[in-house]
Amino acid sequence: MSLGHDDFKRDWKVEILRQPPLIAPARQFTWPLHIAGEEDALARGALRLLVRPASGGVFLATCALGFTDPAMPTAVYGSPNPGEICAVAGGYAYIAEVSTPERCMQIPMKPVAEVVPLPEHGLLLFVGFHTIAAWGKDGVAWTSGKLSWEGLKLTSISGDKLHGLGWNMLTDRDVPFELDLRTGEHSGGGFSK
């Protein structure tokens, strides 16, 4: 587990705990909120966070692991909104306003294979196996179309263009794509019908 590296301004501090605290704060939250089919999510393990908002009380967030595979990211990130925290636990990504952590949102992409902070674009990117979703200051900014049959590799950013490779099942080759970071529209990529 590591703390994600980004340059987003934060109105909070966080400590990643290896085990539950001996004395837990009064406010405690479990993410995800009740979701059908996720009843046993905590049995896989959890990322525990002691969050200290700039104002308001400290709280403990217990974030259920999506997957136990160590290749799936587990980290904490800032957000384009300084009052939001993004916790990624085994490929499940959670975003919550630290002033109202009881209203946590789970990013629908399962799993999130990579998180890419882009403070200069005001975006936090969630990269899956087929698509990319962007989180902006006001929530979901866009979700790309399918870029790959299975697996994405981001290669570079030039201006407002993200470049990468998406695998094409029919040719068994990685095909370059270009994605507009302002809109999520893309050209190229390995997914073809």
Rank of each mutant, 00 (worst) to 15 (best):
S55W: 15
C104V: 10
T100C: 15
V98I: 05
H121Q: 05
S55N: 15
C104D: 11
V115Y: 02
K153P: 12
P119Q: 03
E150S: 12
W149E: 13
V116A: 07
S99C: 14
P53N: 06
P70L: 08
M105C: 15
D138P: 05
G57D: 11
P101Y: 06
G151N: 05
V112C: 02
G139E: 01
T62G: 02
P73M: 06
P82H: 10
G57W: 06
C104T: 13
L152H: 01
E84H: 15
G91A: 04
G122P: 00
R52P: 14
G91I: 00
V88R: 10
Y77I: 11
V51I: 08
K146T: 10
L65W: 04
T131C: 03
P111D: 03
G91K: 02
W149Q: 06
L152I: 02
A54K: 14
S55T: 14
F67H: 15
W142T: 00
W135I: 00
A113H: 15
G91S: 07
Y77D: 13
G78D: 06
S144R: 04
P70R: 07
P82C: 08
F67W: 15
L152E: 07
I85P: 12
M105H: 13
I85C: 11
H130P: 05
Y94F: 14
S79T: 12
P82G: 12
A96M: 08
A61Y: 03
S55I: 15
K110V: 11
S144Q: 03
L154K: 08
L50A: 05
G128W: 03
L124W: 02
G66C: 11
S99M: 14
P117D: 04
T62Y: 02
L118V: 03
G128N: 02
A96C: 10
C86T: 07
G57N: 11
G78S: 01
M109D: 08
I95H: 03
I107T: 09
A89R: 07
L50R: 08
V88S: 12
G136N: 01
V98Y: 08
P119F: 02
V116I: 10
K137H: 11
T62A: 08
F59E: 10
V76C: 10
L123R: 03
L125I: 00
G122K: 04
P117R: 09
A61F: 04
L125D: 01
C86K: 07
C63L: 05
C104S: 12
Y77R: 13
N81A: 15
G66F: 00
T74H: 06
I132A: 02
P117I: 05
E150V: 10
